[in-house]
Amino acid sequence: MIGRVAGAPVILTPSWFVAAVILTVLFAPTVQNLAPRLGREIYLVSFAFVLLLFASVFLHEVAHALVARARGQHVTELAVTLWGGHTAYSGSSARPLDGFLISVVGPLTNLALAVVFWFSFQAQPTFTVPALLLYAGAFSNAFVGFFNLLPGLPLDGGQILESAVWAVTGSRTRGTVAAGWVGRVVAVGVVAWALLWPLTVGVRPDLWTVAWAALIGAFLWSGAGQAIRAGRSREAVSGLSVRGLARPAVPVASDASVAAVGREVARAGGPHVVAVVVDAAGRALGYVDPGAAAAVPPDAAETTPVAAVVVPLPAGASVDAGLVGPDLLAALAQVGRQASVVAVTDAGRLVGVLEVSTVVAALRTARQG
C-alpha cells in the first residue's frame, strides 16, 4: 500500500514493475529516433514516460473512486497493475445514472489530461526532452481515454453502454449481457485491426503488434465473458426470496414433550412444517429434527422432552422474511457458516426456517436455467 484515496488503500501490485520494465524497453527506440543525441539516457527518458503514463492511469482510477463515493458507494481499493489499474467498491449501482457517471469520468479525465499536455507541448519553443514527454503524455492519454470509451465490457465504454440499455429496458442484466457481447466484438476487432490495417496500406502486419493485439484481445474477451456470467448470475440471485424458499414453522415451548410437538406440527399443516423451540421472548433456540423425533418410541413420546430431539441454532441465526436477492445472500453470510438452518421472522415473529442448502440449490438451478 502506498497511500489512501477516498478512504481506500492504493496498492501498487508486483505486476506493475513487470509492466514498467517492458514499456520502458518498448518505448526506448521511439525516444532514440526522436532524440538521437541522448545516448544511454534514452532509457531514463523512456522510464519517465512510463511513470507519466501510469500517473495518468492512476488519476483515471482516482476519478472513478471519487465519483463512486459521491454516488454512495464504499470504495475498497485502488490498484495499479500490469494492465493499468482498477477501482473496487462495494455494492452496486442503484440507478443507471450512477453507473454512467462512475464510468464516464475516468476516460474524460484522460481526455482532459491529453488536452493539457497537448497545449503544454505546443507552448514549447523547441523539441526538447520535456517537449517529447509532453507530446507522449498527450498521445497516451488520448489513446487511453478513447480506447476506454469503446462500447464493450470490461471497458468503461461498456459500463456506459450497460447503463444506457438498463435505462431504456429497465433491466440491468440486459444491459450487462448486451455490453458483454459488444465487448467480445471489440476484442475480435482489436486483433482484426492489427492484422488487416497494415494490409490496407500495403505493408505486412508487424508480428510484435499482432502479439500485443492478441494479448489485449484475449484480456477483453475474458473480461466480457466474465461480465456476461456476472450479469446472468445477478439475475439469478435477484429471483431468490426468503418467502419463496423458507419452510413454515410452528413455535413450541422448550418444556414440551415430543408427542405434544407432533400434535402441534400436525395442526399446523403436517410434515412440511418445522417445529422450532423458542424461549419466553419468542427467540428461536433450535429446531426439531424430524428423524430424531420419529425415532422416539410412541409409548415414550409423551414423557420425552423436546430438548432430546432439538438441533440448536447459533445465537442470532435468523433472517427477515422480506429479504430478496443480494440482501438475502448478505444476511446469510452475516449469520456465518456454522448455521445450516436459520430462523425466519416477520416483524419479530417466527414464521419459518430457511435451509442454506435450499438456497444454494435454488441459486444453482437459476444460474443453469
Results as ranks from 00 to 15, higher is better:
residue 233 S to G: 05
residue 204 R to W: 11
residue 327 D to C: 01
residue 306 V to Q: 05
residue 247 R to N: 04
residue 180 G to L: 07
residue 267 R to S: 15
residue 162 E to W: 04
residue 51 L to K: 12
residue 228 I to T: 05
residue 44 L to G: 15
residue 164 A to Y: 13
residue 144 V to N: 02
residue 143 F to C: 08
residue 20 A to W: 08
residue 212 W to N: 10
residue 367 R to C: 02
residue 126 T to Q: 14
residue 253 A to I: 06
residue 292 A to F: 11
residue 104 V to W: 01
residue 7 G to C: 10
residue 112 A to G: 14
residue 70 A to Q: 14
residue 279 D to G: 06
residue 245 L to H: 04
residue 176 T to C: 04
residue 158 G to N: 10
residue 287 Y to I: 04
residue 302 E to D: 15
residue 349 R to A: 14
residue 254 S to F: 08
residue 217 G to Y: 01
residue 127 F to M: 15
residue 201 V to Y: 10
residue 185 V to D: 01
residue 260 A to E: 15
residue 134 L to G: 02
residue 34 L to D: 12
residue 15 S to E: 11
residue 354 L to R: 01
residue 305 P to K: 06
residue 269 G to M: 09
residue 72 G to C: 12
residue 299 D to F: 11
residue 269 G to C: 08
residue 359 V to R: 07
residue 174 R to M: 10
residue 369 G to Y: 01
residue 278 V to K: 07
residue 97 L to K: 10
residue 278 V to W: 06
residue 308 A to S: 15
residue 155 L to S: 02
residue 263 R to T: 12
residue 51 L to E: 04
residue 151 P to S: 10
residue 83 W to K: 01
residue 310 V to Q: 05
residue 9 P to C: 07
residue 242 V to P: 00
residue 232 R to V: 07
residue 306 V to H: 05
residue 124 Q to I: 07
residue 268 A to N: 08
residue 61 E to R: 02
residue 11 I to C: 06
residue 39 G to V: 08
residue 154 P to L: 09
